[in-house]
């Protein structure tokens, strides 16, 4: 059974100018020990999906349809008091900016032990020992000494390690990492990715890695889901999606990333930009930018259709009826 199983998730925002549907009919699942990458442009709905799982959607946004199963348990519409027991205990969350997710007024030791004591029956001494072990595990040198340090005494990379230690406090089965490396330098980024990978392998944690950086996905993820304007455009094994993307959007996206040693004068790019939620065209949201768009693309959004390698599916009418394109 998958650790996380989302089916037909819809998230809507009622506004004065009508209802905006930010996420539409999203279905995906993550197995234990697997890292699923979620990529998309800003505003595509990737962070919203992560927030919906942990019950942190900003009102008026809310889940209108669909089911989120965590280890088989429906957590879609749990009351806040129940959700609090799951968040932090079964689901660990890592946010983009490590400085804002740590409280500047408490030492990291206090923050770690408080989280542990909230969810686990432990004595203070046990909690401290566990916290130090966690700090050691995420690669903070001399954790006994650093235990009483404040967040500002750490560098960016070290702070992100503390945040990861916080997420791991109660042996979660699922980690949601929302742009965990975006605020960090490339050299530190590599360290954090290596850490996330090691943790998911060793502890069998299912990880949802939300990012806009294809390089990070290529390196860390086992499978990848590409989101465009609130809908799943393509999902599949990371190597097949990157090496042989099937959805025209994914193809365009991959081509537009500059590569070292490519020596192109002009980069291939997708014309236009992702539509705003209130101006999404009928049918497939990508149709105004797509060179393959045909009649049906303007009428109806495509379901996920098998394309390319095993398990790779693209939401594109081009593949209907087993057709091949490129």
């Amino acid at each position: 059974m998958a650790v996380l199983d989302i089916s037909n998730l819809c998230i809507e925002f009622p506004t004065r100018r009508g209802v905006l549907s930010a996420v539409e009919d999203l279905t995906l699942s993550i197995e234990a020990g697997e890292i699923l990458g979620i990529v998309g442009e800003s505003g595509a709905g990737k962070s919203l999906t992560g927030n919906a799982i942990v019950g942190l959607l900003e009102p008026p946004g809310h889940v209108t349809e669909g089911v989120i199963l965590l280890n088989g348990r429906d957590i879609t519409h749990l009351p806040e008091s129940e959700m609090r027991k799951i968040r932090g205990a079964q689901i660990g969350v890592i946010f983009q900016d490590p400085l804002t997710s740590l409280d500047p007024l408490y030492t990291i030791g206090q923050q770690l032990t408080q989280t542990i004591l909230t969810h686990k029956k432990m004595s203070n001494a046990q909690a401290k020992a566990w916290a130090i072990e966690l700090l050691n595990e995420v690669g903070i040198p001399a954790p006994e000494r650093r235990f009483d340090a404040f967040p500002h005494e750490f560098s960016g990379g070290m702070r992100q390690r503390v945040v990861i230690a916080l997420a791991l406090c109660c042996d979660p089965c699922l980690i949601i990492a929302d742009e965990p490396t975006t605020a960090l330098d490339v050299s530190v980024q590599a360290q954090i990715i290596a850490l996330l990978k090691r943790l998911s392998r060793e502890k069998g944690v299912a990880t949802m890695l939300v990012t806009h950086d294809m390089g990070v996905i290529a390196e860390a993820a086992d499978r990848v889901a590409v989101i465009y304007s609130g809908r799943l455009a393509e999902i599949g094994d990371v190597r097949s999606v990157i090496d042989a993307p099937k959805h025209p959007y994914t193809k365009g996206l991959m081509d537009s990333i500059p590569q070292i040693g490519q020596n192109l004068k002009i980069l291939p790019n997708i014309v236009g930009a992702m539509p705003r939620l209130d101006a999404r065209p009928d049918g497939c949201a990508f149709n105004p930018r797509c060179s393959k768009a045909k009649f049906i693309c303007h009428q109806q959004a495509a379901p996920l259709i098998e394309a390319g390698s095993v398990g790779q599916r693209a939401a594109c009418w081009v593949y209907e009826g087993g057709e091949k394109y490129v």
């Binding site: 050299s187 294809m214 990070v216 290529a218 390196e219 990157i242 590569q259 070292i260």
Partner: peptide, 23 residues
Amino acid sequence: KLLLETIPDLRGGSHRKPLEGEV
């Protein structure tokens, strides 16, 4: 050299060596 090694490689997958330490 170290900076070049830390670039996430899209095609090659996961072979970069993290640069030790921070600025």
